[in-house]
Design a protein around this nucleic acid. Structure first.
Lengths: 354, 354
DNA sequence: TTCAATCTTGGAAACGTTTCCAAGATTGAG
DNA sequence: CTCAATCTTGGAAACGTTTCCAAGATTGAA
């Protein structure tokens, strides 16, 4: 009938000893006679006692807790990051507190504040704009152990990031190798993500390098609901494009669907390349060409970096820039084919894709 | 240079007043002269003071924190549940602590223990087996506000669940309507999920009801890696089946891919129906027929239920069983067609699907 | 049997809050 | 100007731990 959970004091009383003794016995620190040990153990068991992490944290000033901020869990990339981070933290006896910023800087800052006030021991996060984030500034001011994920290193913080520019260059190269000239870059919330911008910039620079036309920037502001419609309109407006690089796989897949609704063949009429390498890309036909990244390694690594600072361990080695991604070819990328539905011969005359 | 974050005591000292006053001013509770208020405010600002949720929780015995346990974030259904739960909690000033059980009862219990010791105010969770879960027993013993998600109500706990049996019955009906007799039920970790079992039982019962053959239970134990191979083998062994109901969409999509690798046409040679209604099912061709559920509503509702108990609000109404799912038809479900690649006429002689 | 060394034990302080309470300061009415 | 009512303020206790320290109990060797 007691609603209040039992405390160490209750155990001490029941066992007929002092709270210090209970603490020592239950934590296996310090000495105790066999008799007392037995009494304490059975009292704790009878009461169903569990230490309150609160009291413990207050006194040790360590919560065994790591804060994690990501833009959204709707993107499987971040879901994987979080899952891997959670596992790694758990492996070391740490808990993860999750917050999603919804790609909103205000919520991002808000989340950082809350996590800090919850006294998290460290933070792992993906911010919208690493080079200009109030949240990061706050964290740095507090000198909290922290590691970025998918953001480029910034504010002197370690970062498990993808080399977006180098990856985008490989995409441009792939388009160029297939003979594309007129390409576009498709982004969902362009101004809200530094990743997206880096990919675009890298892509644009590489297109120039390879002598292709400047890629057309195709921005979409809105959310899911009418996404397919918007994409349809956008694609219809830009029939000249033979290839599109999307800032993430979901967008690429949606574009694939929208293009087909317009009667376009993939890749003959339109080639598509995504970013992230989510598994869904391998379920569609043809497979989505994309830049594969490794969210699990990122999430795990970021937690390791934070823990290293926390526990005075050697800092884990960050992957070399080139090892942060790998271009994955797929049937969605092929040579552009002139002519509408009768371009079969032209298609077969070129090297078969994949 | 101070590494220790400033406490209320520091602010009091700087402002030249007592800590009680600081507390009152900063919390806007109790009175204070305009002068003191100003001094406290500027001192707090200068020090960059933030309350420690720890001390506060210890004294108020409320952490403004809700624990959340799901099997995995790899399944977008749970990712959505978590995301929605997180948003709803946040809306009410609560934080979410996340734990994944990896479909493992030991980790499930472990997670519950940790969250309890972290003094979460409530819990939202999906367990592997609601009718027999040590974690749930622990929670019930502690009388912690708690709500199940995707599990059937159990232990007297509220639950935002899908009526798996009724949903499975609709699937059986759909198969029957299309003329299927020999069907199979495909599950990934059958013994590890009560949802999967309920779906199978409901499906089997309904098949009998509709005069179809008992569905064949196709179990897979292993994880991703070789999933496609395993599915291929399984499908090759059971050529007689004309339709398969998979316990979730990912499995259904993987089966679709494996079936195609075997040269089967979907749905002519094999019809497929999934469960969950993830958006990926609409990206493939043909669309995946499935049972749609609403993870966001579930996650949000569960948090509301917990908060209702926490804040003495009226309990939110649980959805009626029938409203927990809706059958979504799709091209992956059609009438079975006799004969291998030359069964076109037979196909067109039957009502065209969807 | 005795004394020193060791083992066992519990009181008390500290961690950062909130809140009760009493005391001192201020106000206003008569 | 006086007294009561009100406002403002800070000390202290409480929340649940851990850990320091000193005191009492036990052990073993001479």
């Amino acid at each position: 009938m007691r609603s209040r959970p039992p405390t160490i004091k209750d155990v001490a009383e029941q066992a007929g000893c002092g709270i210090a003794t209970v603490s020592r016995v239950l934590n296996g620190t310090g000495s105790a006679s066999a008799d007392t040990r037995r009494k304490v153990l059975s009292a704790a068991d009878a009461l169903g006692f569990e230490f309150s992490a609160l009291g413990r944290s207050l006194q040790s000033s360590s919560t065994k807790t790591i804060g994690c901020i990501v833009p959204s869990l709707a993107n499987p990339v971040f879901a994987e990051v979080v899952q891997a981070a959670q596992q790694e933290a758990h492996r070391e006896g740490y808990q993860l507190i999750l917050a999603c910023s919804e790609y909103d800087e205000t919520q991002e800052l808000q989340a950082a504040r809350t996590l800090i006030s919850k006294q998290v021991d460290g933070l792992v996060l993906t911010v919208n704009n690493a080079s200009d984030s109030e949240a990061l500034e706050l964290i740095r001011a507090r000198q909290l152990p922290c590691c970025l994920v998918y953001n480029r290193a910034s504010f002197g913080l370690p970062a498990w990031a993808v080399d977006n520019r180098a990856a985008a260059r490989e995409v441009a190269q792939a388009f160029h190798d297939q003979g594309h000239v007129q390409t576009g870059f498709l982004a969902l919330r362009f101004h809200r993500s530094d990743r997206s911008r880096e990919r675009y910039e890298g892509f644009a620079a590489a297109c120039r390098e390879f002598g292709m036309a400047d890629p057309l920037l195709l921005e979409i502001e809105e959310q899911d609901g009418n996404l397919l419609e918007l994409l349809g309109t956008l694609l219809a407006e830009h029939q000249a494009l033979t290839g599109i690089f999307a800032s993430n796989d979901f967008l690429a897949l949606a574009a694939m669907k929208a293009a087909r609704a317009l009667g376009k063949r993939i890749p003959d009429d339109l080639s598509l390349v995504g970013f992230d390498g989510i598994s869904t890309g391998l379920l569609v036909d043809p497979h989505l060409a994309t830049v594969e990244t490794d969210p699990r390694t990122m999430g795990q690594g970021a937690v390791q970096s934070v823990l290293a600072r926390l526990l005075d361990r050697p800092t884990p080695e960050l992957p070399s820039a080139a090892a942060t991604f790998s271009f994955r070819t797929g049937g969605s990328l092929g040579p552009p084919v002139r002519g509408k539905a009768d371009g079969r011969e032209a298609a077969t005359s070129l090297p078969s894709h994949e």
